[in-house]
Design a protein around this nucleic acid. Structure first.
Lengths: 331, 331
DNA sequence: GTGAAAGCGCTAACAA
DNA sequence: TTGTTAGCGCTTTCAC
């Protein structure tokens, strides 16, 4: 914005061609002769011309902007998602417009989103209500839910197999012989939390076990720390804790070691979920379930691009495999 | 995009007013009678009308989009910046369009950036060349360099006092009596790295000390780990290491403890820079220098908004205070 | 305060 | 292959 910017008409004048000739040279797949093209490019070069993407979008009906809605980046998992998704889309000529939801008014962003005429939306937040997804879908804007799903909405989704991941963790802990297994939940109504817990409980049940205790951390660092304190301050302690994501697991491990002076895994075992980079750091060395971010991002980008370019509206659902990553924090 | 969307003309027809009346209703500061306004709003409501931001931008010359250019989010510092900046701008009616630079072709994004007619740019990456800043400035697009500066460019900057921060760390380590103080540098030509090192070396010099050894980690996690290995594998070891940012410091601490079996701070002390949240985690408990993110974000947003709204082009430079945060990793 | 009309910079028919 | 023409949806004069 600012400065009297160079338009296609300016270029046309300098190159001695029509304005549409300029437009064509900058539109892939349009027919322009080599001589015209080079004249135009030369003129554009000297004037420093760049097509106005907004004007282009206005008429073409495609903005090449994808809205990404996120609640918070405290959990490193989501910043990785932002980076990868942005790169994947950029490689295909799209860009990411970021929308941070404000706690309590998650649906306020919907207005902003739609005003920008975005071509598609990725909702990467377990805390979002389904309203955004529904409104967008109703307007024919492709929606991909990342790391969650909504039962019967017109929205696509990319998740990992959270039920299976939870199940695998349970089997792992049971095989190690733990008897008092606790769970620290994330946001209670989030699909990730529900699925992980369901798989976990089922895995325990198959060995005749059940959750020994259960606390809620709401996917927050501080929330998890407090949940851990509640879990540990009674006389009888859990011998293993499944924390619903890695981000919370770090908080729990810190509380266990620093505040209660216990050792991991000697005194108590901890397992998490996500396999964020920090989980591999020796200071935590956390046994966890990998959410294959690259694979999930690739899937999300594929679905979105497919729908944006072919106006396909059949929602797709991809479920990536959940892989147990055994490190030193348990057993 | 998609679906035949509702336009202001549709609303006008339903409300029995002219299209311009609709426009005025949605333009703050335009004169519309209460009766017209309510008729328009009612019609807009029933049709689900939302002004097309792109069309508005085309004519008004302001897109209300701010470009944010970042190289990588591996370092948690930058994801925090993204979140806070995005929120700050959103509160003022702007949104962030994200551009990830590809290593080696950092100047390729410039084309994309300018096409989107953004109102301003924030460059939050120490690895960016100054070309983007210059091109944008030349076009009259306000630029704010975040966490770095360019000597005499037409770009504003927000940094913390990196020289002073380095200086404080040096004085701190010297006061603790360390004798063999090493430095693990970030990206060598980055202003943050140059300044931190300069201040650090100066601080040492005032006590007649100099860097005992120096390695380069390039602001990368793996780069830092390798630098640490080089530093530790010789017979004589440093007794303290200043690592140019926290992100690298974590890698260094992991190598010290896990690979060399040394204790921190008993055998070797480590200090970092940034004070990212993880620095406070008990597993690291890192003594570091705080970069006051909130303050810096506020400053960046202020500068940008001021320049975007008043078309001021005098570059501003804000330097936040660097505060030493003493924890347990040193001395 | 309101409507008619012009035009932001561009793409996409349509003829030529 | 080209130029001409008509808009995309909106803001903004300009008369009234």
């Amino acid at each position: 914005m600012a400065k009297p910017s160079v338009t296609s008409t300016d270029v046309a004048r300098l190159a001695n061609v029509s304005q549409s000739a300029v437009s064509r040279t900058f539109t892939s797949g349009a027919s322009v002769s080599d001589s015209t093209r080079s004249k135009v490019l030369a003129a554009a070069e000297t004037l420093g011309y760049r097509p106005n993407a907004l004007a282009r979008s206005l008429i073409s009906g495609r903005s090449h902007i994808v809205g990404l809605v996120v609640a918070y980046l405290e959990n490193h998992f989501y910043s990785i998602v932002i980076e990868r998704l942005s790169r994947a889309l950029q490689a295909r000529g799209y860009h990411v417009l970021l929308f941070m939801t404000e706690p309590g008014q998650q649906d306020k962003v919907i207005g902003d989103i739609l005003q920008y005429q975005i071509d598609g939306v990725v909702l990467a937040s377990v805390t979002l209500s389904s309203q955004i997804a529904e409104e967008c879908a109703a307007l024919g804007v492709p929606v991909v839910l990342f790391n969650r799903y909504i039962a019967d909405a017109q929205a696509s989704s990319v998740t990992s197999d959270n039920v299976d991941g939870g199940y695998k963790l349970a089997r792992f802990l049971v095989a190690k012989g733990f008897q008092r297994i606790a769970y620290i939940a994330g946001q209670e109504n989030a699909s990730t939390n529900l699925d992980r817990e369901q798989g976990f409980v089922q895995g325990l049940a198959e060995s005749g076990q059940r959750l020994w205790k259960r606390e809620v951390g709401d996917y927050l660092f501080e929330g998890a720390a407090e949940a851990a304190r509640r879990l540990l301050q009674s006389d009888e302690r859990p011998d293993a804790i499944f924390v619903a994501n890695d981000h919370m697991a770090f908080a729990v491990m810190d509380v266990i070691r620093s505040e209660f002076g216990l050792r991991i895994p000697a005194d108590i075992s901890v397992v998490g979920y996500d396999d964020v980079p920090e989980a591999a750091w020796p200071a935590y060395d956390l046994t966890t379930v990998e959410q294959p971010v690259d694979e999930m991002i690739t899937a999300a980008a594929e679905i979105l691009l497919e729908q944006m370019e072919h106006k396909v509206v059949n929602p797709a659902h991809r479920v990536a495999e959940a892989r147990l990553v055994v490190r030193g924090s348990a057993g």
